[in-house]
């Protein structure tokens, strides 16, 4: 601030300070009394990571990408009977354990970015404190429960191009392949359950 801009009346700054505090005192305060009033979190809040098990192929990419090595995944292979009679038997990975140690997790979100199968999601839930640091490793069931708290993604900005996956889905639909039978039985993420076609 240059000297020219400085106020010249002595004590004007003092009065201004008093006025500011007085004005703040008579305006309502910003405090939200948390346990009684839950905060309104913005979309994409990084509260906890939910696992949508049905999408997970146990590719281990998330565990490998995690900078903290705090994702634990165990799995085994199971044979899948041949699709057509006489065909070759296939195998697939079955998830045995999926756990995230939230005492180590630094909420970087790399695992979620890395997952190529849309199995990991941010949930805004944050009230999962524990009394022991060892209890901070949360297993698959808990991660699945959190999955149902994941909010729908916020709408795109008006005029923005449609997301790539929507385009891709539209193209696939245009090819009009008949849906495979086991697709219908698969559970959907909560926000997709209602409007399948959209």
């Amino acid at each position: 601030m240059s000297d020219g801009q400085r106020e010249t009346t002595p004590g004007a700054g003092l009065v201004k300070g008093l006025a500011t505090t007085l004005k703040t005192m008579v305006t309502p305060s910003h405090t939200a009394e948390y346990p009684h009033r839950l905060p309104e979190l913005p979309p994409r809040s990084r509260g906890v990571i939910g696992l949508f098990e049905e999408n997970c192929t146990v590719c281990m990419l998330c565990a490998r990408e995690c900078p903290d090595w705090c994702i634990y995944i165990d799995s085994h292979k199971e044979p899948v009977p041949p699709a057509r009679p006489g065909g070759r038997e296939r195998s697939r990975n079955v998830l045995d354990r999926f756990a995230i140690d939230y005492a180590l997790c630094m909420y970087c979100g790399i695992c979620i970015e890395a997952c190529p199968f849309d199995a990991l999601f941010w949930s805004p839930e944050f009230e999962y404190a524990e009394y022991d640091i060892r209890d901070m490793t949360h297993e698959r069931d808990r991660l699945r429960e959190w999955m149902w708290t994941v909010p729908p993604p916020p709408a795109n900005d008006p005029g923005a191009p449609a997301p790539k996956e929507v385009d891709a889905a539209a193209k696939t639909a245009a090819k009009a392949e008949p849906p495979r039978s086991n697709d219908a039985a698969r559970p959907q993420p909560p926000w997709e359950a209602g409007d399948d076609g959209g």
């Binding site: 505090t21 007085l22 703040t24 005192m25 008579v26 305006t27 305060s29 910003h30 405090t31 009394e33």
Partner: peptide, 13 residues
């Protein structure tokens, strides 16, 4: 109380 409200807080509740 006064200090809290002057700082936009509620103080003890």
């Amino acid at each position: 109380k006064a200090m809290a409200h002057m700082q936009g807080r509620l103080g003890p509740m």
